[in-house]
Amino acid sequence: MSHAEDSIIVCRCEDVTLGEIRKAIREGAVTLDEVKRITRAGMGPCQGRTCRLLVAGEIARFCGKHVSGILQSKYRPPVKPVKMGDLAALELTPLSEPGHGQQSGASPECTCGKAVNGR
């Protein structure tokens, strides 16, 4: 592996290089979770939207497997980073409230008139 390749940034959120990822894999990491726990690749705000497949590809190459056989990490909420102040200010009606959550047709609103998805 060349030094030029070593310095390629694979995870842009956490500034993790290909060299760091390959080191973790050489040291025994065979799943995305393990690489993530060692290097932080995929722990940033985008949650691995860019680096996930690249890291999986590196593990697959090292292990001589197809990329589909590499154990993936879970996707966790929120989908996009959300300000704590916005979350604190939300006034949400629990879906478990009696009668709430029953959608009428294709309407995004519940029959009780409250938005179901909080959009």
Partner: peptide, 29 residues
């Protein structure tokens, strides 16, 4: 994980450290 947790956690911590209001949640587990 639940949104009830997100809401309650943010409610409480934004009152403890108000500067957190402008800080984004990246992930919950």
């Amino acid at each position: 994980h639940s949104w009830q947790f997100l809401k309650r956690m943010c409610d409480i911590m934004c009152s403890v450290v108000p500067a957190l209001m402008g800080v984004r949640v990246v992930r919950q587990w």
